[in-house]
C-alpha cells in the first residue's frame, strides 16, 4: 500500500485523488446519515455532526499551531531554551532587518494606494462604455494567475543585457530606454529603486481587484445624486472628486485594507524575482528564510508573529469603518 503515501505514476495519483474524495464523502455521509436516523437526536449531537469536523480542523491547523508559534518566538533557534524577547529585539534592531522592515512599510503603503488609484480611475473611465466588459477583463486577468507566473512575466519585462557590441535588449523596459536614447538599467539590482519595480508587480495584480469592487460601488451610486450634481454644473474631475469618491468611501476603505493585508503576506514575488537579494527582502519572505532555510526557528516565529500583529490594526480600522458606515445608514 505504499502508493497511498508515495504514488509515482499518473494513474496512481489520480486514483489516490478519487479515493481521498470518496473517503471524505463516506465519512461525512456516515455522520450525517447517523444524525438523520436518530429521531429526536438532542441538538448538541446535530450541532456536533455539522460543526465537529470543522472545529477539529480549525483547532488542529490554526489555533494550536498559532499559539505554538507565539510560544516558539520566545525561544532560541532550535526551540530549546527560553530567550525572552531576544528574537524580537533582533528583528527590530539588526541592520539587515531594518532594511526588511523599511521595505515592508514601502510595500504596504504603496501597493494599496497605487492599486486602488489605478483601479478606481480605470473603473470610472470605462464605466458604462461600449467596451466596458472587455476593458475590465483585461485589467482583471492578472488576478487569475499565480504570483510566481506574474513575477516571471515581469522579470522578462525587466530583463537586462550588458551593453556591448551588437547585443540587443530583450527586456521591453530596457528597449524602451534604448529607444529613448538612454542607458539600459539593471532594474532588479539597482538599490533602492529595485523595490519599486517589485512593488509594480503587486500593483499590476491587485488593481484588478480594486477595479472590480469599486466599479460595483460606482454603479451603485444613486442616479438622483449624479443628476443633481450634473445640474449643479459638476463634470469630469469635479464629479469624480466631489461625488464619486465620497459616495464610495466605504468600498474604498475595504479595498485599501484588503490589499494592504494581502500585500503584507506576499513572499512569492520577492522570492521569484530577486530571492531577497539586493536589499529587497520583506517580512513575509524573511520569515520563510529564517524558518525553513536558515533554521532559525525562534526568529522565524517572531517574524510570523510580527506579521500577525501588523495585520491587527488594519483589520481594527476596517471593522470600525464598517460600523461607522452602518451607523450612518
Amino acid at each position: 500500500m505504499d502508493w497511498l503515501l508515495q504514488p509515482d505514476t499518473t494513474a496512481e495519483k489520480l486514483t489516490l485523488m478519487v479515493i481521498a474524495i470518496l473517503l471524505f464523502v463516506v465519512v461525512m455521509g456516515a455522520i450525517l446519515l447517523g444524525i438523520d436516523r436518530l429521531k429526536r437526536a438532542p441538538t448538541w449531537v446535530v450541532v456536533l455532526g455539522f460543526l465537529g469536523p470543522t472545529l477539529l480542523f480549525l483547532a488542529f491547523g490554526l489555533l494550536y499551531p498559532g499559539l505554538r508559534t507565539v510560544w516558539n518566538s520566545f525561544r532560541d533557534g532550535r526551540g530549546r531554551t527560553f530567550v525572552g524577547a531576544d528574537n524580537y529585539v533582533t528583528a527590530f534592531t539588526d541592520d539587515r532587518f531594518q532594511t526588511v522592515l523599511r521595505n515592508t512599510a514601502l510595500w504596504v503603503v504603496l501597493v494599496p494606494l497605487l492599486a486602488t488609484l489605478f483601479g478606481l480611475v480605470y473603473a470610472v473611465l470605462v464605466d458604462r462604455t461600449r467596451f466596458e466588459y472587455l476593458a475590465k477583463t483585461l485589467i482583471f486577468l492578472p488576478m487569475s494567475i499565480s504570483l510566481v507566473g506574474a513575477s516571471i512575466i515581469w522579470k522578462f519585462v525587466y530583463e537586462y543585457k550588458p551593453v556591448q557590441g551588437n547585443i540587443q535588449q530583450t527586456g521591453l523596459l530596457n528597449q524602451v530606454l534604448v529607444w529613448l536614447g538612454m542607458q539600459p538599467q539593471q532594474f532588479l539590482q539597482d538599490q533602492p529603486w529595485n523595490n519599486l519595480f517589485l512593488i509594480a508587480v503587486m500593483v499590476w495584480i491587485q488593481a484588478g481587484f480594486a477595479m472590480t469592487v469599486l466599479s460595483a460601488a460606482v454603479k451603485a451610486i444613486p442616479d438622483d445624486i449624479v443628476e443633481a450634481a450634473r445640474l449643479d454644473g459638476l463634470h469630469g474631475l469635479g464629479m469624480f472628486r466631489y461625488i464619486t469618491v465620497p459616495s464610495i468611501r466605504p468600498a474604498l476603505v475595504v479595498v485599501v485594507t484588503t490589499i494592504a493585508m494581502a500585500t503584507l503576506k506576499v513572499f512569492d514575488i520577492v522570492r521569484t524575482m530577486t530571492g531577497g537579494n539586493f536589499d529587497t527582502s520583506v517580512v513575509a519572505y524573511e520569515f520563510y528564510v529564517q524558518s525553513f532555510t536558515a533554521r532559525q526557528q525562534g526568529l522565524g516565529a517572531a517574524l510570523a508573529v510580527i506579521l500577525f500583529v501588523l495585520v491587527i490594526p488594519i483589520i481594527a480600522y476596517n471593522v470600525r469603518q464598517l460600523k461607522l458606515a452602518e451607523e450612518i445608514r
Partner: peptide, 29 residues
Amino acid sequence: WIPFRGRELLFVAVFALQVVPIQVTLLPL
C-alpha cells in the same frame, strides 16, 4: 439555522480566525 447555546460566540471565533496569517501555523504543522 441550528439554534444552540454559544452559537454567536463560536461564530465570532471562527470569523476571527480569518485574521491569522497562515505563516503563523506553518512550522508547528
